[in-house]
Design a protein around this nucleic acid. Structure first.
Lengths: 340, 340
DNA sequence: GTGAAAGCGCTAACAA
DNA sequence: TTGTTAGCGCTTTCAC
């Protein structure tokens, strides 16, 4: 039914080997006559031959596919990573298997098993939690792995990420420089590394500046959670003068709650966020935010991974661990009021 | 290096066949003794056995993977589709191969070839243009294909989509009912089916209502294009009273240009859009927009596709073509002024 | 109840 | 310069 090299070889009367060699571009190397080569090529073209990757995969133990494990494709931040990665991979003939874990560690373990069974050549990963036995399994199988955006410092796995701590720290310092003394923080999912780092940055800045107000609420990178937590926050006796949403999804929820309760931004409440989504400029009050160099991060990580994949088995240089931490920038807009 | 059924069979002294049968869950059928079965299972567990899909694929001519060809993962609208599709596929053990064509027809042809060589079981597709020879190639190979969001009415391929024409028509009717007589439209990429339908809906509503102003600009679903086209539009002698952006990406550009040129929405210019992105509610002026039932569309399409995949070869009922067109809804906000 | 052996499509070591 | 053949890991027909 499907065309195979056997069909080609029978049709023009040369061996399977010859066909295979011509089609995989090593005709020169075996000094196959130009005539034979062109006959093979012509017949392949005529029949519409497409190589069967499963067979190649089985034989070569190489699948020309990369797995991408991420917390949620529905989140524009992660889908942008997928987009960039895909754009690097496609021209090289690699497939991208995307696995969406929905921020769930169990799903992540399954994703890893799934990828192993698919003979994946390498894994790009944005881990969803603190669990790492499944990641160690990948390591044991000698599979190249690179972390993006989130990572485990203690594992011998390269990573490329924004410096989440630094970003949050810088943002809080800025708020303080504007005179704010009561700054609340609405976080995403606990135990997620990027979230912890950001919260850590927030707390560090608070304590370094000897402020005595500290408030951290929330447990999910969603608009719903941002909304609920803000409602809760606004019922506290001692209210903040500024709210730091640790993602733009959370931010939208914060803004919704603020609007409902009649708070104007920035007059009644200053608001800042992490992610710098494209639409922040157009909000009723343009929101100051931390910009992550997402495209650069994605490109670096996939290049790093492909590098490891290519090198695998070849040179005997140990696969050194690379640690790339990129400093994010604060993008100043109009959502912070000077407090006196 | 990797564990195979051979390892298991040798370790416990049963045949490959038996191991295979137990592991693929047909032990009952062959009346394999419970003892043997449990020994196999135990050893597989102990060794951390993971089946090699390439081998299964080669043998069964089934890859348990589905291809998704889309115009751009960076566009939240399409990445949401990918997310939903992925969520249906993952629990069934299917892989999702995502191919981002960057709205380019050549890339789309390559994507199709790529998928064929991967022995894909079915293809979900959001076509980027008018070209369909590569799609006919899929048909010739008897591969199940389903279109989402965009489609070719003339091909014998099922589709699930928003009724783009109807959506645009309804929106323009609404604008007219508010008294607008000069309505401009900024479109996305020409020759893209969804875009053409929307433009068609716009024009139809204009002509049915005997308005004599008609303006269609733009050629890309991007913020940049929306911006440029609006700048251009605002230089025309006869200006519109309302602008219809055919996507939310375009909308952001429109808003940027409007703001720069000192137009207030809706006082100086009414604005509406297609897509109903989550952030529209929070813009300085919340924008009235067409809401596409994206999650439903995605779910229906992948279910339809899996159905075809499962049925393939089995029943001899011809694979009937399903045409699902879902009516979108206008979500009314505050960006349209009543004109008298 | 269990097993031997063929074969899916491809590559590469070895032969000629 | 080209061909023969073994084998990648798995399922399945046929045999016992």
């Amino acid at each position: 039914m499907n065309i195979t090299i056997k069909d080609i070889s029978e049709n023009i009367g040369v061996s399977l080997t010859t066909v295979s060699r011509v089609l995989s571009g090593v005709a020169e190397k075996y000094r196959i006559s130009a005539k034979t080569a062109s006959r093979v090529l012509a017949e392949a073209e005529r029949l519409g031959y497409v190589p069967n990757q499963a067979a190649v995969n089985l034989r070569l133990k190489k699948s020309f596919s990369i797995g991408l494990i991420l917390p949620s494709l529905a989140n524009p931040f992660f889908s942008t990573i997928a987009s960039v990665v895909n754009k690097v991979l496609q021209p090289k003939g690699y497939s991208l298997l995307v696995l969406d874990c929905d921020d769930d560690e169990t799903a992540e373990v399954e994703a890893v098993n799934h990828l192993i069974s698919r003979n994946i050549d390498g894994v790009l990963m944005i881990p969803s939690g603190k669990n790492k036995v499944h990641i160690e399994k990948l390591l044991k199988l000698n599979l190249p792995v690179v972390f993006v955006d989130r990572y485990f410092k203690e594992l011998p796995i390269s990573f490329v990420s924004t410096n989440h701590f630094e970003g949050a720290y810088a943002m809080v310092e800025y708020l303080i420089s504007c005179g704010h003394k009561r700054i609340a923080c609405i976080q995403g999912k606990h135990h997620v590394m990027s979230n912890e780092e950001r919260v850590h940055g927030y707390k560090e800045a608070i304590s370094k500046n000897k402020l005595n107000y500290e408030y951290v609420g929330g447990n999910s990178f969603t608009m719903e959670d941002g909304y609920l937590e803000t409602k809760l926050l606004l019922q506290q006796r001692e209210k903040p003068t500024a709210i730091f949403a640790l993602s733009d999804t959370i931010l939208l929820g914060v803004l919704k709650a603020l609007k409902e309760d009649g708070y104007d931004v920035p007059t009644d409440m200053s608001v800042v966020s992490f992610d710098n989504s494209i639409y922040l400029d157009y909000l009723s009050c343009p929101v100051t935010s931390i910009s992550q160099p997402i495209s650069e991060i994605s490109q670096m990580s996939i290049r790093l991974l492909l590098d490891k994949v290519d090198k695998k088995g070849k040179e005997d240089t140990l696969p050194e661990k690379q640690e790339v931490l990129i400093s994010p920038a604060v993008i100043y807009r109009k959502s912070v009021k000077e407090v006196v």
